Computed example of a mutant assay.
Amino acid sequence: MDIMDEHKRKQRKDEHIKYGMLLEKKLKRNAFDDITILHNCLSEVDMESIDISTKLQSINLENPIIINAITGGTSQGKIINGKLAGIAKKLKVAMAVGSQKIALNNKDAVDSFKIVRKINPDGVVFANLSADSSVEEAKSAIEMIKADAIQLHLNVPQEVVMKEGQKKFTGLIDNIANLVQNIDIPIIVKEVGFGIAKEEALILAESGVKIIDVSGKGGTNFIEIEGRRGKSQASYHLRNWGIPTPISLIETIDATQDKVDVISSGGLKNGVDAAKSLALGAKAVGFAGYFLHILLSKGSLALEKYIIEIQKEIKYVMAMSGARNLEELKQRPVIINGKTYHWLKYRGIKT
């Protein structure tokens, strides 16, 4: 790769962090406000016996929280990944690295990803590449960090708006199916903040995908980020593009039923959002932008405390709804209101 292209790629990664943190402060409405878990006044749950462990296919998780894909490839990315890996190890939460494409082309960037496995040798770690990557690239990314699974991210809106982004997406579905057939660890197909509709969720399931991360609208907005980088007017008009996370979660679960394990991410802020996702049927919940905001503004200890608080809040909701484990939480009635209700009704999904 040309040295100048490599420099621009590193610069872009650091700019994603910079503008992502600026936009994080603007986020207002929480789409999870439309979701209510029914209170159980006769709960007989013993708080000390609540079990929040879960499973993503063959991967056992002690709790459902995932530090989702954030960064890597730069000196700043290495520092961030190191701090996140330390927290993941201490709290026994899964962690995904950011896109490793830069490290496949530049050996100097490899350590910014390897540090995660170095600090957390026995933890659950996910590799990350674009869904248009080759089998060889995927295997290299997996080997780089001894990954337990690999995220294949879908980012058409980001690429379209990005001045230097990709503009051709032909063959993506076939490529995903080929990767599923030739990679021997779980594959997670993941959006990057714009959600997955039931039609595409079904296509992914029929292609052999067993884990889907909906990563819906409500969190980090890469259209706005790329718009700020490139000073694009179009990005302003497109800033509301996407499917809100709870809607995408419900659509995906409705389409795939028990064929796919679904991860809820995109704008989750706290344990109540997480519990609502789990009650709707998610097997795990991912946090990225908000965790990074806490890490960079308040430090590692603050983020560590916040994740512990999320775990507590999930358990509080379970106790108040009468659920001893996540499977029982999923059986508790959920009331859906507002925009989410009307969207699902229009889409023919029973609420």
Score class of each variant (00 low, 15 high):
344 L>K: 09
261 D>W: 08
29 R>I: 13
322 G>S: 08
65 I>P: 02
253 I>P: 02
200 E>N: 14
167 K>S: 10
23 L>F: 15
70 I>C: 01
214 V>F: 05
139 K>P: 07
47 M>P: 13
224 E>I: 05
2 D>S: 13
109 A>M: 08
310 I>N: 02
40 N>A: 03
190 K>D: 09
32 F>K: 08
156 V>I: 15
184 D>Q: 12
192 V>K: 06
194 F>L: 10
179 L>Y: 07
51 D>M: 07
226 E>Q: 12
185 I>P: 11
253 I>A: 00
172 L>I: 14
194 F>C: 13
166 Q>V: 09
111 D>V: 02
31 A>L: 02
100 Q>P: 04
224 E>G: 02
16 H>D: 10
194 F>K: 11
15 E>V: 01
12 R>N: 13
118 K>Y: 11
62 E>Y: 12
241 W>F: 15
170 T>Y: 14
5 D>Y: 11
123 G>P: 13
59 I>N: 03
206 E>S: 10
174 D>R: 14
144 M>I: 11
338 G>Y: 13
283 K>V: 00
143 E>C: 06
219 G>M: 03
277 S>Q: 05
62 E>W: 01
85 A>T: 11
218 G>N: 07
166 Q>I: 12
332 R>W: 04
147 A>G: 01
124 V>M: 10
323 A>E: 00
59 I>T: 05
4 M>I: 15
133 S>I: 02
169 F>P: 08
143 E>M: 10
192 V>M: 03
219 G>Q: 10
19 Y>N: 08
37 I>Q: 04
251 E>K: 06
290 Y>E: 09
198 K>T: 00
272 V>R: 14
298 K>E: 15
201 A>K: 08
97 V>L: 00
246 P>V: 10
5 D>V: 11
14 D>H: 07
62 E>V: 11
5 D>S: 14
225 I>Y: 11
228 R>C: 03
266 G>F: 05
66 I>D: 03
68 N>F: 00
347 R>S: 10
163 K>I: 06
70 I>Q: 05
50 I>W: 04
63 N>M: 08
205 A>F: 04
59 I>S: 01
6 E>P: 00
234 A>P: 03
277 S>D: 09
46 D>I: 09
6 E>D: 12
210 K>E: 13
305 K>M: 09
66 I>T: 05
76 Q>L: 15
37 I>E: 01
